[in-house]
Simulated assay, not measured.
Amino acid sequence: MSLLHVDIKKAGYDENKPVICDISFSIDSGELVGLIGPNGAGKSTSIKTILGLMEYVEGKVEFREGIKYSYVPERPIFYDELTLWEHLDFVSAVEKLDDNKFKARATELLELFKLSDHAHKLPVTFSKGMQQKAMLILALIANPSIYIIDEPFIGLDPHAMKLFLTFLERERERGAGILMSTHVLDTAEKICDRFLQVNNGRLTAQGNLTDIRKQCGLPHGSLFDCFHLIAEGSYK
C-alpha cells in the first residue's frame, strides 16, 4: 500500500462552491512528488484537504496505518512565547521521541542550519529565512514517513537550500515519501520523481518529466516550458 492515497472528488469551504475537483494520486516510499501550478490554482486547498483542514470534502485521504507525517507551511507559524528549543522539545514530547536521540538530532540540525546560537531565542523575532530554517528543523526532527511541504525554498539562502535538499535525499533513502508544492521549477525538475500540475482546481497533468512532455507535445521541453503550456491550456 502507498504511504498516502488521495482521491478528492470535491473540496472547498462551501458545499455548493468546491475549490478543487477530481484530484487523485498516491505517494510511495522514497518518492518525491512535486505539486505545481499557478497561484490560485488549488495547490494550497489540496494540501489543506490532505491535512483535514477543509470544511467540505467529498472523497477520501488515506495515510498508511501507523505512520506519521510532518507539515511545513508556506508561512512559518510559531508560538509567541516559546524559544526554538522549546518548540523542538514540544514536538519531541508529542511524538514521544527518545530523549537522548532527540537531543542528539536537534543539536545536529541546529548546527547544520546554523541556528545553534539562536536555539534559546524566540523564533518570532527571527528573520524570514531563519524562520523557514527553523520550520524545516521542526519537520525533520520527528523522522516522519511522509513530508508535506509548501513552498520550502522561500527565504532560504543557497547554502540552506543545498543543505535542505541533501536532507530530503537522505530522508528518501530512509523510505520517507515527500509531497512538495513549489514554484521553483528548475529545482523541481532536477529532484522530483513525478509532478502533479493543478490548474483551475483540477489535476491537468501528472507523471514524470517524460510523461509531462508527451502530454504537452514538447519532447525536449523543460518543466518550465511544459508548465506554461499546460497553464495556458494550449497543449490539447
Rank of each mutant, 00 (worst) to 15 (best):
residue 10 K to V: 02
residue 11 A to E: 11
residue 23 I to E: 02
residue 23 I to P: 00
residue 25 F to R: 05
residue 26 S to W: 01
residue 27 I to Y: 04
residue 28 D to M: 15
residue 41 A to M: 04
residue 46 S to P: 13
residue 54 M to Y: 10
residue 60 K to A: 11
residue 62 E to N: 15
residue 64 R to Y: 14
residue 64 R to M: 15
residue 66 G to D: 15
residue 72 V to P: 01
residue 80 D to L: 05
residue 84 L to W: 00
residue 87 H to N: 05
residue 88 L to K: 13
residue 92 S to W: 01
residue 94 V to M: 04
residue 97 L to M: 13
residue 97 L to P: 02
residue 98 D to A: 09
residue 100 N to A: 11
residue 102 F to L: 11
residue 105 R to G: 15
residue 106 A to M: 13
residue 109 L to C: 09
residue 109 L to N: 02
residue 111 E to C: 08
residue 112 L to P: 12
residue 114 K to L: 13
residue 128 K to Q: 11
residue 132 Q to I: 10
residue 135 M to E: 08
residue 136 L to H: 12
residue 143 N to S: 12
residue 144 P to W: 06
residue 144 P to E: 15
residue 147 Y to H: 13
residue 157 D to H: 11
residue 165 L to W: 14
residue 166 T to L: 10
residue 173 E to V: 09
residue 176 A to V: 02
residue 180 M to Q: 05
residue 183 H to S: 04
residue 185 L to Y: 05
residue 197 Q to H: 12
residue 202 R to Y: 09
residue 204 T to A: 14
residue 210 T to F: 09
residue 212 I to F: 04
residue 213 R to T: 02
residue 218 L to Y: 07
residue 221 G to I: 03
residue 222 S to H: 03
residue 222 S to Q: 03
residue 224 F to H: 05
residue 228 H to V: 01
residue 231 A to V: 06
residue 233 G to E: 07
residue 235 Y to A: 10
